[in-house]
Design a protein around this nucleic acid. Structure first.
Length: 116
DNA sequence: ATAGTGACCGCGT
DNA sequence: AACGCGGCCACTA
């Protein structure tokens, strides 16, 4: 494990249930816009049983990238559907499910508004 | 130090 | 809309 790996894992850990992010998006949020591929590798290095919600990371086309491992591909889809993410012809609508990135803790006054 | 390897991406057929 | 390429970045052997 490297610093890069842990940084990726930490960020991915903040994606809420029912939402998704793309590899490129994660890379961009980390300040390395073109490291999408490296992000995928970092996720692959996750230890089995890790609490990191790796399944919430998909490719820019809204699809699952685990083409090689068919088993893993199905489980990813299952995990997402279990959270309410719907698939349409092997794809999810990024417009609808894309996570907007980590938000700073809202200001106290704004929090009140959120409850409305 | 270096060459090889992808859970990627955007662009041009 | 699907496919193929080339470029990219971090990691590994």
């Amino acid at each position: 494990m490297t610093v890069f790996d842990r940084t990726v894992h930490r960020l991915v850990g903040r994606i809420p249930p029912g939402r998704v992010a793309t590899y490129g998006q994660i890379a961009a949020l980390l300040g390395v816009p073109r490291a999408a591929r490296a992000v995928g590798s970092a996720l692959k290095r996750l230890r089995a049983g890790s609490p990191v919600p790796w399944h919430r990371v998909i490719n820019a086309r809204g699809g699952i990238s685990l083409r090689a491992n068919l088993a893993g591909m199905l489980s990813q889809r299952l995990l997402l559907e279990r959270e309410g993410v719907r698939f349409a012809s092997e794809r999810v609508s990024l417009a609808r499910y894309r996570w907007r990135g980590p938000r700073r803790q809202p200001l106290r006054s704004l929090r009140v508004l959120e409850r409305l």
